[in-house]
Design a protein around this nucleic acid. Sequence first.
DNA 1: CAGTGGATGCTCT
DNA 2: GAGCATCCACTGT
Length: 188
Amino acid sequence: MAGKRLTRAFFARSVHEVAPELIGATLLFDGVGGTIVEVEAYDEDDPASHSFRGMRPTTASMFGPPGHAYVYRSYGVHWCLNLVCAPEGRAEAALVRALAPTHALEAMRARRGLERERSLCSGPGKLCQALGITRAHDGLPLDEPPFELLARESGPPLAVGTRIGITRAVEQPWRYGLAGSPFLSRRF
DNA sequence: CAGTGGATGCTCT
DNA sequence: GAGCATCCACTGT
């Protein structure tokens, strides 16, 4: 099911190449997690991206080396996880929006409350809560504990659509998902 | 189910 | 003071 560890070299490319390849990969944090079924791509020429207006203290890790985490607070309430993927000198990242839970579901349920399996990680804020990811983990490398990222074995059926919850650049088809998965934040 | 609105804490104007 | 890469409870079918 899970392949070899994703290295920094994997992420040192355009997010538009990397993001679709993340669908089907396995994301674990302290051994808790599952299969990535939904991501969105953001680059620095994109008005919807946190890197569009230049580096800020809270967005610094998006401008850092690829293969690291960028964690931000959303709507003052939730944490959201990005995987920084940039070629030389760029600030790009893939927002992880949903997982199909496969590892340590009890830990997720304990953090999320008594939730249906479908709802444990079906959104960017939900999955950070389920995995226990916060700002404290911003900037951590993805190829070392507590993170573990494993490549997918084969190319799964891909769904492509427009991104969710933004007000600028709404027409860009930069949302990728595992077609037909019941664990998406929304259907395509 | 689909649609609506409140919570909540920053940053930026 | 507005706006936000969200979620949940609540309403009405």
